[in-house]
Computed example of a mutant assay.
Amino acid sequence: MRKEHSLLDRLDNEVLPASYTTKFDWNAFLDSVTLNIQNMLNVRVGSVKALHQFGMPDFNDVVNQFPDAVLYIRNAIQHFIEEYEPRLESVSVYYVPDPDQPLHMKYAIEGTLRYQEQVSRVAFDTVLTGSGQATVRI
């Protein structure tokens, strides 16, 4: 059985006390997945002492290898989400070129969210800035 909230949500005292309820909230579930993906994409490999492989590579190390960096980052995002966000199934990640913002790399993340009998295809827009920070939006 999958949980409505991520582990980090459950540990975050500021978020959870007001959000406990016996009724499932699909929007809260979707927001939790979105925030968890964003938080995950902002963790760098090696920064979690207990799990050395947890995190994304430093994008600044590969961005100068353009266009190969596009595929490398896409694969890293997809693998990381498949490994550490089990609420999102059938994950696909696509690069979205944006000539108006050459220092940003945009990716679309698509997948399926399932909670008991409810199933929905979802898509997230992800932007990686020149500083390596990621933002994720529904």
Rank of each mutant, 00 (worst) to 15 (best):
M1V: 09
R2C: 11
E4Q: 15
H5E: 09
L7C: 06
L8F: 11
L8H: 12
D9K: 02
D9W: 01
N13S: 13
E14M: 13
L16Q: 14
S19C: 07
Y20S: 11
T21E: 11
T22A: 05
T22L: 06
T22W: 04
T22D: 07
K23L: 14
K23S: 14
F24N: 03
W26H: 05
N27Q: 15
A28H: 07
F29R: 07
L30Q: 09
L30T: 10
D31M: 07
V33P: 02
V33A: 05
L35R: 10
I37K: 06
I37A: 02
N39A: 11
M40I: 07
M40T: 10
L41Y: 03
L41W: 02
R44H: 04
V45T: 12
S47G: 10
S47T: 15
K49P: 11
K49S: 12
A50V: 10
L51F: 11
H52W: 14
H52D: 15
Q53I: 09
G55R: 00
G55H: 04
P57D: 08
D61V: 05
V62W: 00
V62R: 00
N64G: 13
N64W: 13
Q65M: 15
F66Y: 15
P67Y: 09
D68Y: 13
V70S: 07
N75K: 14
I77W: 03
I77H: 01
Q78W: 03
F80L: 12
I81D: 07
Y84H: 13
Y84K: 08
E85H: 06
E85R: 07
P86T: 05
L88T: 02
L88P: 02
E89K: 11
S90E: 12
S90T: 10
S92W: 12
V93D: 01
Y95A: 04
V96M: 11
P97M: 00
P97R: 01
D98F: 00
D98C: 01
D98W: 00
P99L: 05
P99D: 06
D100W: 12
D100H: 15
D100G: 13
Q101K: 08
L103D: 12
H104K: 04
M105P: 03
K106S: 09
K106E: 09
K106Y: 06
K106T: 08
K106F: 10
K106I: 01
E110N: 11
G111Q: 06
G111T: 08
T112K: 15
L113N: 02
L113S: 03
L113Q: 04
R114P: 03
R114S: 08
Y115L: 05
Q116E: 08
Q116I: 06
E117S: 09
Q118H: 14
V119H: 03
V119A: 03
V119D: 01
R121M: 06
R121C: 04
R121D: 07
V122P: 04
V122D: 02
T126M: 14
T126V: 14
V127A: 01
V127C: 02
L128S: 02
T129M: 04
S131L: 05
G132P: 00
G132S: 07
Q133I: 08
Q133R: 13
T135L: 12
T135R: 11
V136E: 02
V136G: 03
I138G: 10
